[in-house]
Nucleic acid binder design. Structure first.
Lengths: 207, 207
DNA sequence: TGTACATCAGTGAACGCGCGTTCACTGATGTAC
DNA sequence: TGTACATCAGTGAACGCGCGTTCACTGATGTAC
């Protein structure tokens, strides 16, 4: 006996509970995906329908989590910075001997160049934030300041103000080299940007 | 006697000739404005209606000049790079004594920071081009290569390959510092980025 | 512990706005005779 | 040199698509009794 069923109603995609715990999980997943997407494609790359589909949901439910697309961006941007720093810190090997060397090697690595979605938000978003509102600018300023401090702390103990300026210059070199290495189509030139950036950053750090 | 005229037809905005010469002028003006707007707001900032209004025209005529918005971008992008370099070269004082010093001072000046629309396209667009098609990437690579060469040429005559790498590193530092100085809301931090970037670029150039 | 009900996360069709593009039209340009 | 006509730069209404947002609805959650 052959049984053909036409027009089957698609089975419930998931058990689809609506518990508070599941909402919190979904909320966090949406934010994490948005933080990646932002670093990958910029603030303008966030598309509500696409984002929700990526999270395994439909777009209508978006507004149970966020008041608007702008509200999401305001929440996802700090997340992008935090996640990017966690990754950078993980890439740093032993902070004992040569902290700057490890940081620089991880920052200007081919892996970091090839994966902006999981990398430093300063480099991924500086160009966009240069044209953005005060909010994002203040956020970037705060994280850049912290990064310059961290670099300065790893230098030989000299004048703190001078060390901070060196920290800023190192960050400028690293961010510039990474952005340019990503913006160039020529693989050799891109590799050379990483290499010369590493050399320059270390030279600046050991003056 | 009082004479009230209602519903007057607006006078022809201009003599409005349609000569070949005027078309060429309009075409050039549209491109120049687009090249500025792109550096100011990025590739996505080009709005056909707004651009044509800025040029003193209406949007319908746009397609007498360009096949599409994409076609305009393809023509305006090289223009943005060329115009930005013309400006940078003009800012360079006497190329005799200390060519790098003059270039660095002009590049990381407050004037350049505050006027991306008329400044270097590499810094203005690197973030966008990192996510763009091969075309824009090849263009940026070409102009960056030329800039690194120019910087290298101004250094003491040593190993050309090493000088080129130094040129790239100097460009990374300058571009990074300028982008970050524009992306930050804190005036003091922004000024410090310019200053430390100038010091670092000169230090790299005189190793 | 069991039952009734309110809440609300998630669904998917529909709406409205912005924007790139099209098109019928105008009138000066510039060419053919 | 003058006249008739074809060309085409520019106009502005209209179209269509993408996308953020809204809304009526579903059904599991979780609370009140």
């Amino acid at each position: 006996m052959v049984c053909i069923i036409l027009n089957v109603k698609p089975a419930r995609k998931t058990a689809m509970g609506h518990s508070r715990a599941e909402k919190a999980e979904n909320h966090d997943r949406i934010l994490a995906l948005a933080a990646e997407r932002i670093r990958e494609g910029g603030l303008a790359a966030i598309n509500v329908v696409e984002l929700m589909r990526t999270a395994g949901l439909t777009h209508g439910g978006f507004y149970r989590h966020f008041a608007s697309r702008e509200d999401l961006l305001a929440q996802a941007l700090p997340r992008a910075f935090a996640d990017g720093e966690a990754r950078a810190a993980a890439g740093k090997p032993d902070a004992g001997s040569a902290p700057l060397r490890g940081f620089v090697r991880g920052y200007l690595s081919k892996a970091h160049r090839g994966d902006p979605a999981h990398g430093c938000a300063i480099a991924a978003l500086a160009g966009d934030i240069a044209r953005a509102e005060p909010g994002p600018k203040a956020l970037l300023a705060d994280r850049l300041d912290a990064s310059a401090d961290a670099v300065a702390a790893g230098l030989g103990g000299e004048d703190p103000a001078a060390a901070y300026r060196t920290g800023l210059a190192v960050m400028s070199t690293l961010v510039g080299a990474l952005i340019l290495a990503r913006a160039v189509d020529d693989r050799d030139l891109s590799d050379l940007l990483l290499q010369s950036g590493r050399e320059a950053a270390l030279a600046l750090g050991s003056r």
